[in-house]
């Protein structure tokens, strides 16, 4: 099992956002997480990446068999967790290229690989950027500063490709993209699919899932995954919306007590039938 989450709760200033979330993800899989606005999808993604704004409690939160709870975000990243932000941060005065190289070299050092020199890195970054339809000028500009929404999303995908994570969490990397850009981003994601890598895509739209076909689809409402299924579930949601599931969620929420052990119910994800593969 690459990612194993049991009874994960997260709150900010005493306000609960995630309430007993459970999820298993194996290497080689693509999972989609869907859910209405404000249901906690980004919070979940940020918690996985190690954001310390949230107070996190869980029975288990492990990645490749290691407990994530005490692991600072930079170590998570070096161990192979990557989060494509829903809202990438603009950082004036820091060139994109400089940042990318610092990130890649930090991860490489952790994996015992030598630093890439500026020239080698430049040519790699250029090639990847080109495959995402980004021009060189964007590499030289300040990180995300003044980038359009679509440019920011591509820049996140570029980072993913350069950092080669084991687990990529893509928080609405498709939002705000026109159809051509969506296809480019989807292709970028698909080239990352491999047996030793897992991908979690957070999305509101079926149209991304037409390109990036998920192995599992989860519905996150009120801070919990209340329904999991195959890719057909996404189509059902597209058709029916979340209303029918929200009622169910509201009923469960009234029973929920933070930190308490809950009995497992039908809404929990099933254990994956395949034996978990060890990732090198």
């Amino acid at each position: 099992m690459m990612l194993r989450i049991r009874n994960l709760s997260a709150s900010v200033d005493g306000k609960p956002i995630l309430r007993g979330l459970e999820l298993d993800v194996c290497a080689g899989e693509v999972h989609a997480i869907m859910g209405p606005n404000g249901s906690g999808k980004s919070t979940f993604a940020q918690v996985l990446a190690g954001r310390d704004t949230y107070h996190v409690v869980a029975d288990e939160l492990s990645f490749q068999g290691r407990d994530l709870r005490q692991m600072p975000p930079e170590i998570r990243a070096r161990e192979g967790i990557f989060l494509a932000f829903q809202y990438p941060v603009e950082i004036p005065g820091v060139s994109n290229l400089y940042f990318l190289r610092a990130a890649v070299n930090a991860v490489r050092a952790h994996r015992g690989l030598p630093e890439l020199d500026a020239v080698d890195f430049m040519s790699r970054a250029r090639d990847e950027a080109k495959s995402l339809g980004m021009d060189d000028a964007m590499l030289k500009r300040s990180l995300n500063e003044g980038f359009s929404g679509g440019e920011k999303k591509r820049n996140e995908i570029l980072q993913m490709k350069l950092l080669e994570p084991r687990l990529a969490i893509l928080d609405e990397s498709d939002s705000g993209l026109d159809i051509d850009a969506l296809r480019i981003v989807a292709d970028g994601i698909n080239t990352m699919r491999s047996v030793d890598r897992a991908i979690i895509v957070v999305t509101h739209y079926q149209r991304l899932l037409n390109y990036v076909v998920p192995d599992r689809v989860h519905v996150l409402i009120g801070g919990r995954i209340i329904r999991s299924g195959s890719k057909e579930l996404a189509m059902e949601l597209e058709e029916k919306g979340y209303g029918w599931l929200e009622e169910q969620a509201a009923a469960e929420r009234s029973e929920y007590k933070p930190g308490a052990k809950r009995k497992r119910d039908s809404a929990q994800p099933q254990e994956n039938p395949q034996p978990s593969r060890k990732v090198s």
Binding site: E74, A77, V89, I91, V107
Partner: peptide, 19 residues
């Protein structure tokens, strides 16, 4: 901004330095 850099593997001090 610091978290964004941390989430890319850049350690706390280095992230501060970059910012």
């Amino acid at each position: 901004a610091a978290f964004y850099l941390n989430s890319r593997g850049i350690a706390e001090h280095d992230a501060k330095g970059i910012l």
